[in-house]
């Protein structure tokens, strides 16, 4: 009986479903074809995140490459019960980009990066397919729904790769205020974007 129940779980490995979570499960088994599919689904977003933070195209590609290989290397550690695949991948991408910004290697070009708020976009934005444009628009609209201080704080932190201390300095606001604005700004974004709490 038990044996049969276990047997029924076997197809789990090979189901040809295309979600990122399924791709990650197959990548964890060493499936390079699955990784190729995964690359096609996430590489543009990974590079996009990294490049928003780092701006330099060559450095961005280098870090994006590190992140994507890291996804391959650590796919067995992805846990779908903790969050979606794209959240896992992009959290890793943002963290790596920020680490690069803060590494001593990058310290020299830090000074002139900190002050700039508008970002150059060396790569073409892909926002041409409808779903991508809708996503882009949704985020823009929801950012627009924040207070000025919430929006500037969140953008300087996430897109600018600044610490909340740097954000406080840039916006000439008390540390405690910035900490609070980052949190309530994110909560408002979460609710506006319809992300499950």
């Amino acid at each position: 009986m038990d044996g049969e129940r276990q047997l029924s779980a076997v197809p789990d490995l090979g189901e040809p479903t295309g979600s990122l979570e399924d791709q990650l499960r197959r990548v964890a088994l060493g499936d390079e074809d699955a990784f190729e599919q995964l690359y096609r689904s996430v590489a543009g977003q990974v590079l996009g995140v990294v490049q928003r933070v780092l701006r330099d195209p060559a450095q961005s590609e280098e870090v994006a490459q590190e992140v994507l290989v890291e996804v391959w290397r650590t796919a067995s550690r992805f846990d779908a019960r903790r969050g979606s695949g794209i959240t896992w991948v992009l959290t890793m991408a943002h963290r790596r980009a920020v680490d690069r910004v803060r590494s001593s290697q990058a310290a020299s070009d830090r000074e002139d990066r900190v002050g700039r708020r508008e970002q150059q976009r060396p790569y073409d934005e892909v926002a041409e397919q409808v779903s991508e444009r809708l996503e882009h628009e949704a985020v823009r609209r929801c950012l627009g729904g924040l207070t000025d201080l919430q929006r500037e704080s969140v953008q300087l932190a996430y897109y600018g790769g600044n610490t909340y201390r740097e954000v406080a300095e840039l916006l000439d606001a008390p540390l405690g205020t910035i900490k609070t604005r980052l949190r309530d700004g994110l909560i408002r974004l979460r609710d506006c974007l319809g992300v499950a709490a």
């Binding site: 996009g48 991408a93 934005e125 892909v126 985020v139 974007l193």
Partner: peptide, 21 residues
């Protein structure tokens, strides 16, 4: 929920990656 929200900020920045990558 907040991690998923910050990932949405990132996802909306999608670019076309070069084939070399």
């Amino acid at each position: 929920g907040l991690l998923a929200t910050s990932a949405r900020l990132g996802a909306s920045s999608e670019v076309r990656p070069p084939e070399a990558l």
